[in-house]
């Protein structure tokens, strides 16, 4: 093996320093959620008491967040993938304009979007108090991420020629879309899905304004816990959040890699 110079060790050390700067607070926070008394430190012992307390008090927020993330995913798939297809096939300048417009909800502060939603629909009683009100906000916020990542793949694969090839072989629009276009945009769709689910799970700005006492999501509950309860409970909440989100991230990454390993058995 090549001998490593001083520069290598310096760079390695620097990288580890930066990484630990970012990771240490996370570890400390998770540990805090497991210690009996954070003030007296780890000597006070480890316990699951706080995690149990979170489960008791905030179970609903966890389920709501998962539900919201999945519903946002479904909505962005149904709206975003066809939208990306239309934008990819369109040649005119209007398509580029719409692409830019789609990013608006990301650029505009979430609070502003939420306020606009409340001003517009706040008086629709049943809607305002239902979880679908938050869903609308989440879809607005996450849709651009789905459209963008699918669009990026569509631009990269010469969609038009692929589709023309399939059409010349006799494939109808439906067959082309589901058998050729979607499978070849898989990586973009999965990347978009990953963004949508994680962004929806973690969204706070907008949700904080949109929620009602009965529609608290996980991040809103977390803010609640930090503000009004023991630091240990807030930290335990963070721990619960991690335990939920990390396997999800790993699962989606794994799904994105799968076609490489698997052989196409059709035909």
């Amino acid at each position: 093996m090549r001998k490593r110079g001083g520069l290598f060790w310096f760079q390695l050390g620097f990288t580890l320093l930066i990484v630990s700067f970012l990771i240490v607070p996370v570890i400390l926070s998770m540990l805090a959620g497991l210690t009996v008394n954070y003030q007296s430190g780890l000597e006070s012992g480890l316990t699951f008491r706080w995690v149990a307390a979170v489960w008791e008090g905030y179970r609903q927020t966890i389920f709501l967040s998962i539900g919201l993330a999945l519903a946002s995913l479904a909505a962005t798939l149904v709206l975003g993938v066809p939208a990306a297809y239309v934008l990819a096939r369109a040649r005119g300048g209007w398509a580029r304009a719409i692409e830019e417009l789609l990013v608006m909800p990301v650029a505009v502060p979430g609070l502003a979007t939420a306020l606009a939603l409340i001003v517009a629909y706040g008086t629709w009683g049943g809607f305002r108090t239902s979880w679908t009100f938050i869903l609308v906000g989440h879809v607005l916020f996450t849709l651009p991420f789905m459209v963008r990542s699918v669009l990026a793949v569509m631009h990269a694969i010469d969609l038009k020629t692929l589709e023309e090839g399939a059409a010349s072989l006799g494939a109808s629009f439906g067959q082309r879309f589901f058998q050729v276009i979607l499978p070849n945009c898989r990586s973009g769709i999965l990347a978009g899905a990953l963004m949508v689910v994680t962004l929806s799970m973690g969204e706070f700005n907008m949700t904080w304004l949109l929620h009602t006492p009965l529609t608290k999501t996980l991040p809103v509950g977390l803010a609640d816990a930090y503000a009004s309860l023991r630091l240990e409970i807030g930290s335990a909440y963070t721990l619960v959040f991690f335990v939920m989100i990390v396997p999800l991230l790993v699962a989606i990454q794994w799904a994105a890699r799968e076609p490489r390993a698997r052989r196409t058995e059709r035909a």
């Binding site: 694969i157 010469d158 020629t161 692929l162 023309e164 090839g165 399939a166 059409a167 010349s168 072989l169 006799g170 494939a171 109808s172 067959q175 058998q179 050729v180 499978p183 070849n184 898989r186 076609p259 052989r263 196409t264 059709r266 035909a267």
Partner: peptide
């Protein structure tokens, strides 16, 4: 899709989501 003409492109336009057999069989499958 109704004219039944074979098309061969400069950029091949093969379907990356299928293997060689899958590509050749596609028109027969649809």
């Amino acid at each position: 899709e109704k004219r039944n003409v074979g098309l061969v492109f400069q950029s091949y336009a093969l379907f990356p989501n299928m293997d060689v057999r899958g590509n050749v069989a596609y028109g027969l499958r649809v």
